[in-house]
């Protein structure tokens, strides 16, 4: 019975810690994921899955330190998995105003459209590198730690992503 009480206490601690993580990182995380996958609903689903994964992890070990890097790493992996599945099955929106819902009117600036157009063309490693450094605000070393690569590789990926963005901007 003592184990049960300890487990119940662990679940409560995990839920409290996840609540804190959600309040602190939800906005940045869903925007990051939305740029990665290009869809608001999918971004919400993936973000919820990320926080639920954090809850499961904390349930197993309530004392485990979970940083924002862990959240972004999980979100990046989930987004890449989604993009790989998307290559096989193309998901079509049910409503015609899907684009309107996905991107608010005040978000449909030229810079936003150019960025998303470039993001749709980028491979997942370049997209995650430029989004982690620009949207999440990580340095090249921190992004390299999240992506499991070197800082030079991150800088190179950012440069190549920037090339695509430049070509998109010149086209418009």
């Amino acid at each position: 019975m003592e184990q049960v009480y300890l487990a119940a206490g662990g679940a409560a601690i995990a839920q409290a810690r996840v609540d804190t993580l959600v309040r602190e990182y939800q906005t940045k995380l869903v925007r990051y994921v939305r740029r990665m996958v290009g869809d608001a609903d999918t971004a919400l689903d993936i973000s919820q899955d990320v926080f639920l994964a954090a809850y499961r992890t904390l349930q197993a070990d309530p004392e485990r330190p979970l940083t924002a890097g862990w959240l972004y790493k999980t979100a990046t992996n989930n987004s890449i998995s989604h993009l790989r599945r998307k290559k096989i099955v193309r998901m079509l929106p049910l409503d015609r105003d899907h684009e309107t819902y996905a991107w608010r009117i005040d978000e449909r600036s030229a810079a936003s459209v150019d960025l998303q157009t470039a993001m749709n063309k980028l491979p997942s490693d370049q997209a995650s590198a430029i989004m982690l450094t620009t949207y999440a605000g990580y340095s090249s070393q921190e992004a390299a730690a999240i992506l499991g690569t070197t800082s030079d590789a991150v800088r190179q990926r950012v440069c190549r992503a920037m090339r695509t963005l430049r070509s998109v901007m010149s086209d418009h």
Partner: peptide, 21 residues
């Protein structure tokens, strides 16, 4: 890169996942 910064700063989407999670 400033263009990317403009797109980032122009975002206003702020969903609340607290209840859902």
């Amino acid at each position: 890169m400033a263009r990317v910064g403009q797109a980032r700063d122009g975002e206003t989407w702020d969903p609340d996942l607290t209840a859902l999670v």
